[in-house]
C-alpha cells in the first residue's frame, strides 16, 4: 500500500474513511463518549464523494503525471 500514485492514495483514504467512520465495532451507551461530529463529517464526506469524479481523476492523473511534474518544475 505504499507505492501508490497520488490518486490511488486518495482513493485508499476514501476507502479508509468508508470503513473507519462507518463500520467496525460500534459502541453506543451511557459510558461511551463518541465524538459527536464523526457522523456529521462522514455525512459531509459522502456528499463530497458523490460529486468527486474518481474515474476521471484517476485516469487524468495517470495521463498527466509527466505534465504535472513539468508544471511543478516551473513553479
Amino acid at each position: 500500500m505504499h507505492e501508490l500514485s497520488p490518486a490511488e492514495r486518495e482513493l485508499t483514504l476514501l476507502d479508509l474513511l468508508d470503513r473507519i467512520l462507518d463500520k467496525g465495532v460500534i459502541i453506543i451507551g451511557d459510558v461511551t463518549i463518541s465524538v459527536a461530529n464523526v457522523d456529521l463529517v462522514y455525512l459531509g464526506l459522502k456528499v463530497l464523494l458523490t460529486s468527486v469524479d474518481n474515474a476521471e481523476k484517476l485516469r487524468g492523473n495517470r495521463e498527466q503525471g509527466n505534465r504535472e511534474q513539468g508544471n511543478r518544475e516551473q513553479l
Partner: peptide, 8 residues
C-alpha cells in the same frame, strides 16, 4: 477494529 471516535 472499533469505529473511529469511540471514547470511554
Amino acid at each position: 477494529p472499533v469505529r473511529f471516535g469511540t471514547i470511554l
